[in-house]
Nucleic acid binder design. Structure first.
Lengths: 217, 217
DNA sequence: GGACGTCCTAATGTCAACATTCAGACATGT
DNA sequence: ACATGTCTGAATGTTGACATTAGGACGTCC
């Protein structure tokens, strides 16, 4: 009943800090991440920072070039399209595979918390955290390690894109989050694979549409 | 017209050598990859080997645990199911996105080479290399970097699984490769997204079935 | 003024020494 | 015999020094 206890190294720690800093806006898209600076700020060796940056590159949050350093990714409309088209395929598969395995009460609780927060005027960033946790729960339920890996490879990028969606698009996000996720729970409960797949994909595509409207003009 | 010239570091080099060794059977599934040994054999520092192993972990070929070293992945039926279900979703998306962009003559040439090799009694390993190149071509044509990344995250595992399919299953692979890929080209030419998606997914699932028949009994 | 070659600097790439952790062998006590 | 505690060796984790590279600043030549 006990999950294996995991120790962590400085690289994971560094990756966490840098990721949070990127989400927090300390390193805007396109900015350079210098290993020496990061090492000094985090008080770890450059080697550990390097390894941490490799983790973030795996998540697609940053990009490294030979002897040219690593930069935070850009957030162009094309990038959004790439990320969300892959995400749609993954969410479709995940939804299908999660039928009969997800803890529906846990999902409902998450949606209820979102609804409550929405009514109480909680900042959209917090709703987004619940949003992601909702999808994490589904992926975990599939117990498909490769699928979960593939999700992690876009998750941070999704997070970053959704943050800009929130920050640029006023209340558009708040207007749809709760309903869309509650609908997803309902379909998962009904258990029709085809319907779940289609809705999950549509859920992602609608997010993309909302985003591109704010990126291009 | 010129692609940017890419320099490479020792880490990529090390990753290539180790990957080839795994494919070649020098490190069977489950075996340990000791950094000191590898560093000595490759005549590079442990740091570079470490970074190379991180690359292979990104490809899903090996798995590392904190202070417990890295091992080559296992090839259980469950692992095959995980890899191929994700691959099916990706191939479906890739096929759809490649319509109208992929170089159909290049694909045809690949299939023809396969057919010729099949008739000439070329080893199945070579056919497999062409098989993978066929799919690489499709993914590249999509110009979707995230999709290509996701493909790279399963590609080496697919390679390894297909190698065991070849080595255990005598001529089952040779009997279907050419026809399936020629059919794929035909559908890509016709350009109906739904048909391409469905066939690409089925193509992967049939490979999974052939594989599980040889892994479980 | 523009094309070219030469430095110089600031960053990354590589390495070898040191620190830490794990897993098993062994001993001890009950 | 079993459980527990201790030790040890072999591996990984971490670090700081050194090597290499990219790209700009500068000067020269035409």
């Amino acid at each position: 009943m006990l999950r294996p206890a995991g120790r962590r190294g400085l690289a994971e720690e560094a990756a966490d800090r840098i990721r949070d800093a990127i989400f927090g806006g300390d390193f805007p898209p396109g900015s350079a991440l210098r290993e020496v600076d990061l090492a000094a700020q985090l008080d770890v060796s450059r080697g550990s920072v390097r390894e941490g940056l490799a983790i973030l590159e795996r998540e697609g949050l940053v990009q490294s070039e030979w002897h040219r350093g690593t930069k935070v990714i850009d957030l162009t409309a094309r990038d959004a399209e790439e990320v969300y088209s892959v995400r749609a395929a993954l969410e479709g598969l995940a939804g299908r595979a999660a039928i009969g395995r997800v803890d529906l009460t846990a999902l409902t609780r998450l949606v209820d918390t979102m609804a409550g927060g929405l009514a109480d005027g909680v900042p959209s960033e917090n709703l987004l955290a619940l949003d992601i946790e909702f999808h994490d729960t589904i992926y975990q339920a599939t117990a498909n390690r490769r699928l979960i890996e593939a999700w992690y490879a876009v998750r941070s990028q999704v997070y970053l894109f959704q943050l800009t969606r929130i920050r640029l698009g006023h209340n558009e996000y708040r207007a749809v989050v709760v309903d869309e996720h509650r609908q997803m729970v309902k379909l998962l409960e009904r258990g029709e694979a085809h319907a779940v797949t289609r809705f999950a994909e549509e859920h992602v595509h609608s997010a993309l549409r909302a985003l591109t409207e704010q990126l291009s003009p």
